[in-house]
Design a protein around this nucleic acid. Structure first.
Lengths: 189, 189
DNA sequence: GTCTATACCTCGATAGAC
DNA sequence: GTCTATCGAGGTATAGAC
């Protein structure tokens, strides 16, 4: 009984990839269907309408983040190294020639449903909350050394990584994400 | 003979606003026409196809940047204050509830024509080149104090401002741009 | 679950009258 | 310059057979 939802997962994988590349509005059921090898009407069996699909993608993306963070927190103690591992997630995205699903949807947010916009805000908030905690932990332990609010630092770290992803893809230059990581680490120490 | 192109300018103003809000792909001739008070077919008189409009918008945006930079360079000597004025441009955009035209189009870049993608890259490059010059000037004069490449710093400053604009709009919180400005200034001094 | 067939809308774009 | 009228493609979505 392995992978009883394999078709659904495959569908979501392809849809996510399309959104991360072309944007939500430019991702069509036709694109999606042809790439998965089914008809557009079959997609409606899994996702009655496009908004359902968009919400599901964002929720799954949030779950994946939560899982990644859980692993980082359980495996790594040093806040500095935690941030390094976190940045690796963005390096991977850049390496795939994509931008963040959350960041992409954030730019389209004015055209999306309230439900999708809420998911996008959750995604941002969850990233920022974790980063805030790491910054506080780092400062408290004396390993980080920065002035001002940890929350604001966290917001800016996340914004910089999102912005760096966009430019990394535009110029096909993943070093831009690595540079962002270096600056962030420098600014915290 | 004042404003003989006023209709064209008005058309471009509205189109730019729509792109900065909804994105290029979500901006339609219908939206545009209804807001300007003409029919969609009339838009084709000014811009034979949508790509022409997109290119014109990006070129005009680049011209406006060039003009803004020219004013900053002529009025301000201190590199620190130059950056401050530059950041004000982003504050204004956030205040209008918009994101940068260049940043917005950069996220859609995989769906756009080569000609538009080239304009987007020019826009990024021009911002980064000016910032690079200011960083070098600041370091040389002893007013800035940072490690490493000025060019990379410039790229990251721009990426951070673009990312901060996106999150500022998402959370309807223009303080996020002000915070970004503060961090940038702190990182340079 | 997946298909065919189809409905209905929106899109960018063109022709031609005025 | 702006309009009406129209086109074809592509968009989401539904009904119903299998």
């Amino acid at each position: 009984m392995v992978n009883e939802n394999s078709k659904l997962n495959q569908l979501m994988d392809v849809a996510q990839s399309l959104v991360q590349t072309k944007g939500y509005n430019a991702m069509s059921y036709r694109d999606l269907a042809s790439e998965v090898g089914i008809k557009t009407s079959s997609i409606h069996y899994y996702f009655p309408n496009k908004d359902d699909l968009g919400i599901a993608l964002l929720q799954r993306y949030r779950s994946a983040l939560k899982e990644a963070i859980k692993i980082i927190d359980s495996e790594i103690e040093d806040p500095y190294k935690k941030i390094e591992r976190y940045i690796e997630l963005f390096v991977d995205t850049a390496h795939a020639g994509k931008i963040c699903l959350g960041g992409m949807c954030a730019t389209d947010s004015e055209t999306l449903s309230d439900a999708m916009r809420i998911e996008i805000k959750y995604f941002y908030t969850e990233n920022e909350a974790w980063l805030t905690a790491i910054c506080k932990q780092g400062k408290q332990s004396g390993k980080f050394n920065f002035e001002g609010s940890a929350k604001i630092k966290a917001e800016l770290i996340f914004a910089m990584l999102e912005g760096a992803l966009i430019s990394a893809r535009l110029f096909n230059d993943e070093k831009r994400i690595v540079s962002a990581g270096a600056w962030i680490k420098e600014a915290l120490s």
